[in-house]
Simulated scan of single mutants.
Amino acid sequence: MDHSLLLDALTAGDWTEMGSIPRASNDTRLLVVEHSGRAFRAVYKPISGERPLHDFPPHSLALREVAAYRLSSQLDLGVVPPTVLRDDLPDGRGSLQAYVEASDDEEAVTLSAVSAIPADHTPIFALRTEDGRDLVLSHSVAEGLRAVAFFDLLANNADRKAGHVITGSCLPSIAPTDIGVFGIDNGLTFHAEEKLRTVLWGFSRASFHAEEIDALEAVAAMDEPLRTALADCLSEAELAALSERAATLLTAEFFPEAPDDRTVIPWPPI
């Protein structure tokens, strides 16, 4: 789907702040942007509202959100909603991402009783709720979610929770049938050290497809267009680590298994 109109709106549209989005770890707000007679909802994350983290550089999460979209776009993965960096927003510089309107399609990641796991899902882990119910988190093995899992390998996503995967549309008023699987909340990405924490381990040991190998080769080569797209968001060390991750995955030829020497599931996982 061509998102050029949406990108133009995010980049230069007039905005109206609608309020804070609850339960977010950092300052996160809903805006409406208007451009060329159309209005779009967008998620604004000001740099000034980022909580300090011990393992990520300060004031860098919004930049990583933008880098995530640019990498997804450069590789034609289509798994990160259009995201731009703007200076003229309510609390200054921050990322502005198209809001994904959830569809009525079956969720790609589910929490259910064992007897209710969808037929095309693979179970990842079990848990017991405070009221004593035994549930299983499972996820689809369809291509849409696989693309998110593949992106997370490259981006070294340290926080792929179940709630960060949405099946829906960025353009519900224009193209309501343009449904995709999107990964949102991509601020904890691109660390130079291995940080992958995800609930999408069900693709482990799956051999890479030809188009995934092409993408890995492109990132490993880190040619000038890709480097230029990412260079104002990531450090040289992070760019080098991204290229090295791709090269390592190429050598392995398949989705890695979860390592047993560190935490591999984000907390909370939902």
Rank of each mutant, 00 (worst) to 15 (best):
G187V: 08
E236V: 13
E101I: 00
F56P: 05
V141I: 15
E244P: 02
G202T: 06
G19A: 08
H209C: 11
D91E: 15
P269V: 07
F40S: 04
S36N: 12
A67Y: 10
E194I: 00
R146W: 11
N156K: 01
S25Y: 08
R245S: 08
H3A: 12
L7P: 00
A67W: 10
P176K: 04
R133D: 12
A158W: 00
M1Q: 13
I213R: 13
E17C: 08
Y99F: 15
A147M: 11
I47V: 14
L196A: 06
D2F: 04
M222T: 11
P268Q: 03
P90K: 00
F254S: 15
R197I: 03
S115Q: 12
E217F: 01
C233F: 09
F255M: 06
T228L: 12
L85H: 07
H191Q: 11
G168V: 01
T248Q: 10
P266Q: 01
L111W: 01
F182D: 01
F254Y: 12
D261S: 06
G37Y: 00
A68C: 03
T198H: 06
K195Q: 15
D185W: 01
S204Q: 14
S235E: 13
V33Q: 05
L200M: 08
S103K: 09
A24Y: 02
S95L: 07
G92E: 11
E34C: 13
D91Y: 14
K161N: 06
V165I: 13
T83S: 09
A229I: 03
L111C: 00
A175L: 14
D214C: 07
E65D: 05
T228G: 11
R160A: 02
C233Q: 11
A162I: 03
F208R: 01
I174F: 07
P225C: 07
E253P: 02
A240D: 14
R64K: 03
F254C: 15
L200C: 07
L71G: 09
H191C: 06
E238Y: 03
S204V: 01
S207I: 11
R160C: 02
R38M: 13
L63E: 12
T177E: 14
D134M: 12
P266D: 04
Q74Y: 14
M1A: 15
L85K: 06
V148F: 00
S169L: 02
E107T: 09
V136M: 08
P57V: 04
S73I: 02
D223M: 04
V136A: 07
Y69E: 05
L53Q: 14
R29E: 13
P58A: 00
E65H: 01
L89P: 08
A62S: 15
D223T: 11
I174L: 15
A237Y: 05
V43N: 09
T16G: 06
E34Q: 15
A155V: 04
L216P: 02
L53Y: 12
E224T: 12
D131T: 13
L75N: 09
N156D: 03
P269C: 02
A252M: 13
R38A: 14
S173A: 14
V114K: 07
T129F: 02
S140Q: 05
E224S: 10
F254K: 14
G19L: 06
S72D: 11
D76T: 10
